[in-house]
């Protein structure tokens, strides 16, 4: 591989690719998280390119986060969808060279359910009362910038990782009870999040 500083020669022009990637990090993170499982979910990405420079993609997934704190428990769960494009930063050395370093951008959204199954009104003197806040569905939208790489470890089989910074554009929830986790985004309290993902992919 080399950085793309010159035009690709005719011998290295490929016919494009179609690749399916499965997220490895969310299941691993869920397996090792607290008991009961604090975080669960999974994610799949479909990637298509005609010229191996621009990769158009769609990422779909489901996340569930169960946060149990001293005075409250909150559960966020729902699906998310990201649409975007990756641009290769590499110059390919041969027709068989599919390793890639890329930057990308996404527009993303999630429809999620927010519950507060347990909310304790705790006064050191007057005592505690537990209430339950009814669950409701909300919508969040955000954009992402991505830096990542995919390496062909076996023929047609890729390991990939990326880091992504996300900027929240819109979160519908305006109630007194905050959303502490948006599926696909993370904690929305600061309006930004940083995330990493590891994936395994297969090129068809």
């Amino acid at each position: 591989m080399a950085f793309a500083s010159q035009a690709q020669s005719d011998s290295t022009i490929r016919k494009g690719l179609f690749r399916l990637n499965i997220d490895l990090l969310s299941p691993v993170y869920g397996y090792f998280s607290d008991v009961p499982k604090q975080r669960m979910g999974g994610e799949a990405m479909l990637e298509f390119s005609k010229n191996d420079t621009l990769f158009f993609l769609a990422e779909v997934g489901y996340h569930r986060m169960d946060l149990t704190k001293t005075f409250f428990q909150t559960v966020s769960s729902g699906e998310f969808l990201r649409l975007g494009v990756n641009r290769s930063l590499m110059k390919y050395n041969s027709k068989r060279d599919y390793d890639i370093l890329y930057v990308g951008a996404r527009v993303s959204g999630s429809v999620y359910n927010l519950q507060y199954p347990s909310f304790v009104e705790a006064s050191p003197y007057w005592g505690s009362t537990s209430i339950s806040v009814p669950s409701a569905n909300y919508v969040a939208l955000w954009t992402e910038g991505v830096l990542g790489a995919r390496i062909e470890t076996f023929k047609n089989l890729f390991l990939g990782f990326d880091v992504r910074g996300s900027l929240l554009i819109y979160d519908f929830n305006r109630t007194d009870y905050k959303t502490l986790f948006v599926p696909g985004f993370g904690n929305p309290q600061n309006g930004v999040s940083l995330w990493a993902s590891y994936s395994i992919g297969y090129k068809f």
Binding site: L25, K69, F71, S123, P124, A149, F161, V163, A196, Y198
Partner: peptide
């Protein structure tokens, strides 16, 4: 390089700060 970067990022991801509350709620 990619392998080393991958391990580093994986380690950073799990290096979370502990939740400590130093503020009165009432």
């Amino acid at each position: 390089f990619f392998s080393a970067l991958s391990i580093l990022l994986f380690s950073l991801f799990f290096a979370c700060a502990p939740d400590v509350c130093n503020q009165s709620t009432t």
